[in-house]
Design a protein around this nucleic acid. Structure first.
Lengths: 190, 190
DNA sequence: GGGTGCATGTAATGGGTTACATGATTCT
DNA sequence: AGAATCATGTAACCCATTACATGCACCC
């Protein structure tokens, strides 16, 4: 039973299950919805849509408009919905985490503590911003999509971000304190 | 000012800064040290070492032994150490998170709540195991490497795992409760 | 005039895993 | 007898980003 990878086409099907869209629309929507845990570039999206159309999982309609380039609107077919449901049932494949911050920190003793502190601070700021974004998104969603049956699921992904960024923030603070301690120890010895 | 990627060779340099090793050794060590936030396959390691040797950042010595294949021992050179330090100073490049669990959950309304619960439970078990591993590793490290000046840095990376997995666990529990609520709501309507 | 947004797509390139190929030793 | 471990390496393949190519409209 091979899963054959191919998460991208399934992600595209998922997004098109919300409403018909062009490749361009999809890119825009990603950054406003699943952008904090998923991304797709045009180099994946356009060929992906073509492939899905060839398999009959989406339907393409061309909208002509003066001035602007043609819009290629894709909508999901019943077969596409079925394929999406099948994929949703497959167990999540465990992904290998790759965290460059931790990699650098693991070898951090080779450089001054201040260097490591910079890295950690940058991370801290990133997650502080993220927390604000999640809060704003959750508020907006609850207003705009109050009646959508999918709302609870969307909020779950935001809640994940909240927990995750919160935990990293806490770790950052602990780590900064630890780095300070290392630095003052180093100074005392000089 | 281009960073030109290439995290793999730097990771290799970092590991070789601990002690001289063969490609095989490196793979083994990774799973016992940085395995929970970094991974390299042989297909990366062997060509990577070759490349580093060509640049004079590591030195290769061949150890012959009967029966077993030759061991190619690599040790880091002073140039290699300098290169490593340089890399450690470069700001961490923000990585695009890709979380398949969240992607599936985002579209979770298309399938039964029980399907999503399965995914979340699998994740929960993963992080429960992870927490135990981190605790064991921290204990072991404190015993074995009590005098190593790098110990605090190694513990920081473990502490990250502790915070991270702890947060995800908490989220899993909340999410499972939410999914149960969704399911019983669905049943009530039937 | 120049930047930004709309809109599509391809090609080059990079990064990484998996499968393959080889072969002896040691453990079960 | 067969599996696992030791040990090295290459080739094929997949996945993904970036750069390139095109071109109009609108705003400053």
């Amino acid at each position: 039973m091979k899963t054959k990878g191919g998460t991208t086409p399934n992600a595209l099907l998922g997004l098109l299950s919300l409403r018909p869209m062009s490749g361009y629309d999809i890119r825009q929507l990603i950054s406003k919805s699943i952008g904090h845990f998923w991304s797709e570039s045009y180099g994946q999206i356009y060929p992906g849509l073509k492939q899905l159309a060839a398999e009959g999982l989406v339907e393409k309609k061309t909208e002509r408009s003066k001035g602007k380039p043609d819009r290629h609107l894709y909508s999901i077919t019943p077969d596409g919905r079925e394929r999406l449901r099948e994929w949703l049932k497959i167990p999540v494949s465990e992904e290998v985490a790759r965290n460059e911050l931790l990699l650098k920190l693991f070898f951090g003793a080779h450089v001054a503590a201040s260097v490591n502190r910079e890295h950690v601070m940058a991370n801290m700021e990133f997650h502080q911003r993220a927390l604000k974004v999640y809060a704003a998104m959750a508020k907006q969603l609850r207003l705009d999509e109050a009646n959508d049956p999918q709302l609870p699921y969307w909020l779950m992904t935001l809640n994940y971000g909240r927990h995750y960024s919160g935990a990293v923030l806490k770790w950052c603070k602990e780590t900064l304190a630890e780095l300070d301690a290392i630095e003052s120890k180093g100074k005392r010895r000089q």
